[in-house]
Design a protein around this nucleic acid. Structure first.
Length: 279
DNA sequence: TCCCAGGCAAGGC
DNA sequence: GCCTTGCATGGG
C-alpha cells in the first residue's frame, strides 16, 4: 500500500520496487548511494531521498506529486513480469534478478541531453560528465545543482562542453541546446505516436536509433521500443533466436513483446551488465 | 598496447 | 538503401 504525507511517500508491502534496481539499471545518471544505504535521486531541479527502513520504503521529498509520478507508482509491474518470465528461461532469470526495476518518468529535456552524452561512452563517465554539466551550467539548489535548462545550455559554447569532457559530442549538445532555445517544442512529441516521435528525435544531431529509443522510453513513456546498445547485442547473440542483423534487433524484440518491450529491455540490460561483464 | 563503453555522422558504393 | 570509418575520453 501507499500513503503520502506533505514531505514523503511511504510504500508498505509494495511489490516491484527496489531502489538499487531502479537507479542502477542504467536509466538515470543522477543519483548517489549514501553511507546509510539510502539513495539521493535528482531530476531537473528536484531531489528525493529513498530509504528502506524495516518493512517500509520511504521517499522523502519536497515535491511529493512530482516523485509519485517519477517513480511510476500507479503502474502494476507484476503482470508484465509474469508475461515475460513465461517466455523463456533467460527472461525468467533476468526478470527475477531485476524485478525491483520500475521505469522512471524522467524529464524529457534532461533525457535528450543525457543520452546524447551516453553515445559510445560508459556509465561511470556519463555520470561524471552530467555532474560537471550541472555544476557548470545548472542553478544552485539546496542539495546541489539542477540539470541546466535549455536556455542555460544554450549559453555554453562548444568549447565549454568539451571542457566538461563531452569530447566529440560537444557539438551535438551545442546544436541541440541552440535548437531548443530557438523554440523547438519537445513537449509536442507527447501528442505523437512512437514512430512519429522517433522521427522527430532522429532529426537532432547526436541522436540515432538507440538514443532516440532511450528518450522515447525514459522521457516519453513509450513502451513499444527496445534500445539496442552493445550489451543488448551480446544478450541477443547469446540467448535469442538468431537471424537478425544488429540493425534489426530492436524491431525483432518489439514484434515479439509489443508494449512489454521497453521493460523487457531493461531487465535484459541490467542482467547482462551484472553477469555478462567482459573479462 | 589494444579494446571497450547505453552510437552516431559522414562519405562511399 | 547498406557498409565502413573516424571519433574524444578514460578505464581495464
Amino acid at each position: 500500500m501507499i500513503y503520502t504525507t506533505d514531505k514523503s511517500i511511504v510504500l508498505k508491502d509494495f511489490d516491484n520496487f527496489n531502489a538499487k534496481d531502479i537507479l542502477e539499471c542504467g536509466q538515470i545518471f543522477r543519483y548517489k548511494l549514501n553511507d546509510d544505504g539510502s539513495y539521493d535521486v535528482f531530476s531537473r531541479d528536484k531531489h528525493a531521498n529513498v530509504s528502506d527502513v524495516k518493512d517500509e520504503i520511504v521517499i522523502h521529498t519536497d515535491d511529493v506529486d512530482y516523485f509519485y509520478n517519477f517513480f511510476d507508482l500507479d503502474t502494476d509491474y507484476k503482470a508484465v513480469c509474469d508475461r515475460l518470465s513465461a517466455r523463456s528461461e533467460i527472461l525468467k532469470q533476468a526478470v527475477d534478478y531485476g524485478k525491483g526495476i520500475r521505469i522512471l518518468n524522467q524529464d524529457l529535456e534532461e533525457m535528450l541531453f543525457s543520452f546524447i552524452i551516453s553515445a559510445n561512452n560508459n556509465i561511470k563517465r556519463i555520470q561524471l560528465i552530467v555532474e560537471r554539466l550541472c555544476k557548470a551550467l545548472g542553478s544552485k539548489t539546496d542539495f546541489g545543482y539542477a540539470f541546466p535548462t535549455a536556455s542555460q545550455m544554450a549559453e555554453a559554447s562548444v568549447e565549454m562542453f568539451k571542457e566538461l569532457g563531452a569530447g566529440y559530442r560537444a557539438e551535438y549538445l551545442f546544436d541541440t541546446a541552440q535548437r531548443l532555445n530557438d523554440g523547438y517544442d519537445l513537449e509536442q512529441l507527447r501528442t505523437m505516436n512512437t514512430d512519429e516521435a522517433r522521427r522527430q528525435l532522429l532529426s537532432f544531431k547526436g541522436v540515432g536509433p538507440k538514443v532516440a529509443d532511450c528518450v522515447l522510453l525514459f522521457g516519453l513513456k513509450k513502451q513499444d521500443v527496445f534500445p539496442v546498445d552493445t550489451w543488448i547485442k551480446k544478450v541477443y547473440h547469446n540467448y535469442f533466436e538468431q537471424g537478425h542483423s544488429d540493425r534489426d534487433i530492436a524491431g525483432y524484440f518489439v514484434s515479439q513483446f509489443g508494449e512489454d518491450a521497453g521493460l523487457c529491455q531493461q531487465y535484459l540490460f541490467y542482467f547482462q551488465r551484472k553477469y555478462g561483464q567482459t573479462k
